[in-house]
Design a protein around this nucleic acid. Structure first.
Lengths: 95, 95
DNA sequence: CATCTAATTAGACAATAAGCTAAATATTAA
DNA sequence: TTAATATTTAGCTTATTGTCTAATTAGATG
C-alpha cells in the first residue's frame, strides 16, 4: 500500500497508468509516448509492478503491460475513509 | 494536484492526515504522536499545506491544523477516472 | 521588558530516486 | 547459428527528500 502511494507520486508513472487505462501496451509502445530513455521507462514499469499497479505478460518478443485495478481500488478506499464523516470511529458525535 | 500526490507518498504525512481526520490539532500535538523532531514535523506540515491538504490557523501561541478535504476529493476523482470503464473516452466499445 | 513556550526557518547530511549510456538477456527470423 | 529486435539489468551521476541540531520568530505572562 505504501509502495502504491510511492509509485503514484511520479507524474510519468501516473501517465503510464492512464495510457494503460485505454488499452494494454507493450513496453516499447509505452516508451514511445515519452521523451525518456527506454531503460528509464523500464524502471518506472518495474516500480509500478512492485506496487502491483500493473501486470506484465510476455508475448513473443514483446512484454505486454496491463492495469491491475485491485490495488488502485484499495488506495481509493483510503481516500474514502479520509473523506468519510469527520471523527468517525472515535468521538461521540450523536445529536 | 501533483503536489498532492507527492505529499501523500510519505507515510508520516498520511498518518498526520489521519490524525487530523479525528480532530483539529496543534503542531505540537501532532509532533507528540511521532518519534520525529518538531522541525521535521513542521516541514511535513508545510508540505501538506503547499499541497492544500491541510490549512493552518494561529490561535494564540499555537497553530491549529485542520484537514482540507477539497484537494483530497480531487485526488479521489483521479482514482475514480482510473477505475471507471476501461477505455472510456477513446475507443468505440459499443456493442 | 524579560522570560517562557510554541512553532518555524536555516543549514547540513545521508539516503532515495530519476535520469542516462552501455552491456546483457530473450525471442524471432534468416 | 548468426543477426535483428525488444526489453531489462548494471553502473554511474545528479537532484530531491527526510532527518537532525541550532538559531530565529511570535505570542503569552510575570
Amino acid at each position: 500500500m505504501n509502495d502504491a502511494f510511492k509509485a503514484l507520486s511520479d507524474p510519468t508513472r501516473r501517465k503510464i497508468l492512464q495510457l494503460l487505462k485505454e488499452r494494454d501496451l507493450t513496453a516499447g509502445e509505452i516508451a514511445d509516448q515519452f521523451n525518456i530513455s527506454k531503460p528509464s521507462i523500464s524502471h518506472h514499469l518495474n516500480i509500478l509492478k512492485q506496487a502491483q499497479l500493473v501486470q506484465d505478460e510476455r508475448q513473443g518478443q514483446n512484454i505486454l503491460y496491463s492495469l491491475n485495478l485491485s490495488v488502485m481500488q484499495e488506495a481509493m478506499g483510503w481516500f474514502l475513509g479520509m473523506i468519510g464523516t469527520k471523527g468517525d470511529g472515535h468521538d461521540d458525535e450523536r445529536k
